[in-house]
Amino acid sequence: MAETTLQEARATGSARLEWALVAIGIAALIAAPFFFYPVFLMKMLCFALFACAFNLLLGYTGLLSFGHATFFGGAAYFCAHAVKVWGWPPEAGILLGTAGAAVLGLVMGFFAIRRQGIYFAMITLALAQMFYFFCVQAPFTRGEDGIQGVPRGHLFGLLDLSQPHNIYYTVLGIFLIGVFAIWRIVNSPFGMILKSIRENESRAISLGYSVANYKLAAFVMSATLAGLAGATKALVFQFATLTDVTWQMSGEVILMTLLGGIGTMVGPIVGAGLVVTLQNTLATSGFPVTIATGLIFMVCVLVFRRGIVGEIYARLLTSVGTGKKE
């Protein structure tokens, strides 16, 4: 009994703190383009959303996908093609990209959810590689060159997205909508069932949930949101290339999420921010980038086993716990 009240008290306390932090975070993001290079910030936001979408699957459902680049890069291609070749407005391009990612997610998920653990990861990887191959061969992706010079256009025919601040706030809006959607999903009854599947799948089955359907739904949602991030990225950088669908991209999002901490809302955002910042600063500093990234990953795994944010949460909880007991 005492334990639960303590937890509840802690929960309300930390919830208030979290809300305050979220408000500060949003305020910081609104002010950020006046201090930092907007393209860099937008890249961070796109990858943060990508990582959050990935985390929906890994952190809250316990499924490690090794093929999320398919949704990110696929959506980027669809969006870029629609906007550039068909002359669609940007919002329609993003919608198409997102919808395309959802379809891809449905197909990949259909095959993948039949297996668990590393085998699940392997099916997603293999299917993602096949999609990569499709992108290399399909004429609309223009092979190695990718779709270049995608116009940003006018959002809803009004807002000129070629202006740095306009596009930044649009991307920020998309990011916030995406993260909010994930937060809603995670904290809905549906999200609870996902977590119960993660904790104990056979228990969830015995309780009468059709686990396969829930997993597939989670997979498609994660794919859709990853697609949203990818389509937005295509508009920000004005190109879609093969790099976005390679397995390295799938690997990158895994790293971001793990580095930040799986199963937390903030973790993937911090992870993405950290990785993107590292890449950018190191890539332009003359310092050997690759070795630094490699070493940082190794150290992070050894020091922060639950990811940076996960570890901080855990430490905080134990310290609060012991503090109350004393």
Binding site: L58, L64, G117, I118, G251, I254, L255, L258, L259, I262, P288, T290, I291, T293, G294, L295, I296, F297, M298, C300, V301, L302, R305
Partner: peptide, 28 residues
Amino acid sequence: GVLNLIVRAPMFNTLLITFGLEVVLTYL
């Protein structure tokens, strides 16, 4: 020296550390 620290850790962590190792070895 290194990997024993994570031998019972979740699969994700072993993936991360061996990935880091691959990057470092390649660079060296």
